[in-house]
């Protein structure tokens, strides 16, 4: 009995109780899914599709967590860079897969500028990054709402038909980069659709981040996050490294939203990016990251678990108890996870 207890305890310790609960809940959902006549293969396909859609956005948390800037509640800033890149690519009428690359180039350029300014701001308010990041993100979204109305976009697929100006709230990526990654090399196995392109693209970016963390600068970034005083004593320019991490996070956010759009099919402007930070933040926390430690594994596990819950709860709930409580569960789980992380001192669980 006590031995079992110990096994359980060590499992909890190594995996983290909240994550264990969430994983268990997800498993339960999969187990009872057949009762509600839900196709498991379809569910897994959905989870994978959403994984490909969101993983890069979650990856965007990693550099800033590594450098000790905390959870990037300012993700909307990166998303705005992505929106600018995407709309510019369409405005220039670059069609097909090429539009995706043009969009990425533009968005990364914007992200570098935004990230640089944002990074300098965050360096001046060390210790209160998270609260200010939240409001920087919101203010930027609201500011861009005005810009979307005013910027001289002309492409007929994007502007309001009746006024001839001002961007629409949602713009289809059809004909541009719609599914350029999701359909690339995708195949079906046992009835499960694998979005190979999206996953490969994510893997490529994750590999880049992983590799970066093994270089001299990457090592410095981890050290800055782990103990900034130590890093400074070793001759590191802490502010520079932090700014670099913010630029990287912002750029990944920008690419992340493009990946999201190509899979989702629409560019969502105006208040669209408003609440996109919270799901990404809670996903990486569910994956086992803490406020100052995160790894690629946290990203993968977290995105799978989070998207699993988001996908499975509505369908299972609907079919079993005929009530859609999924929204409530999503809110409680994701924000509960963030609260849990904020009230803990630090130390990673993976």
């Amino acid at each position: 009995m006590s031995k079992q207890d110990n096994v359980f305890k060590s499992l909890v310790n190594s995996f983290g109780l909240p994550r264990l609960l969430i994983a268990g809940f997800l498993l339960l959902l999969f187990c009872i899914a057949p009762i509600g006549h839900i196709s498991i293969t379809q569910s897994i396909s959905d989870v994978l599709m959403r994984f490909g859609q969101n993983a890069v956005l979650v990856l965007a948390m990693v550099p800033m967590i590594h450098s000790g800037c905390g959870l990037n509640f300012g993700l909307p800033l990166g998303i705005i860079a992505g929106l600018l890149g995407g709309t510019l690519a369409i405005e220039l009428n670059v069609v097909g897969a090429a539009s995706f690359f043009v969009a990425i180039i533009f968005s990364v350029l914007f992200a570098i500028v935004f990230g640089y300014v944002y990074g300098i701001l965050l360096n001046r308010i060390k210790g209160s990054e998270m609260m200010i990041a939240t409001y920087v993100g919101y203010a930027a979204v609201a500011f861009m709402c005005m810009m979307w109305l005013l910027l001289p976009y002309k492409h007929p697929q994007m502007v309001w038909g009746y006024a001839g100006r001002g961007l629409r709230t949602t713009i289809s990526t059809e004909g541009f980069y719609y599914h350029v990654l999701s359909d690339f090399l995708s195949f079906k196995i046992f009835g499960i659709t694998i979005p190979t392109g999206s996953i490969l693209f994510f893997a490529f970016l994750a590999l880049c981040i992983w590799a970066f963390l093994h270089t001299k600068s990457g090592t410095a970034m981890t050290a800055v996050g782990s103990n900034p005083v130590f890093a400074r004593a070793c001759g590191i320019n802490v502010n520079k490294i932090r700014t670099l991490s913010v630029i990287m996070s912002t750029a990944l956010g920008a690419i992340g939203i493009l990946v999201y759009q190509q899979s989702f099919g629409f560019i969502q402007l105006y208040m669209g990016p408003f609440y996109m930070a919270l799901p990404a933040v809670s996903a990486i926390l569910i994956g086992g990251a803490s406020v100052n430690k995160a790894s690629i594994a946290n990203v993968v596990i977290g995105t799978l678990l989070f998207q699993g819950i988001v996908t499975m709860t509505p369908s299972v709930m609907n079919s079993i108890i005929h009530t859609d409580m999924s929204e409530v569960i999503r809110i409680v789980v994701s924000n509960g996870m963030i609260l849990y992380a904020l009230t803990r001192k630090s130390e990673a669980t993976l």
Partner: peptide, 20 residues
């Protein structure tokens, strides 16, 4: 949109001024 922007902007600025 302007008033939404200003609402968030003012909180941002006030927080930043205080911290700095």
């Amino acid at each position: 949109y302007f008033r939404v922007f200003v609402s968030y902007g003012v909180i941002t600025i006030a927080l930043v001024i205080y911290e700095v």
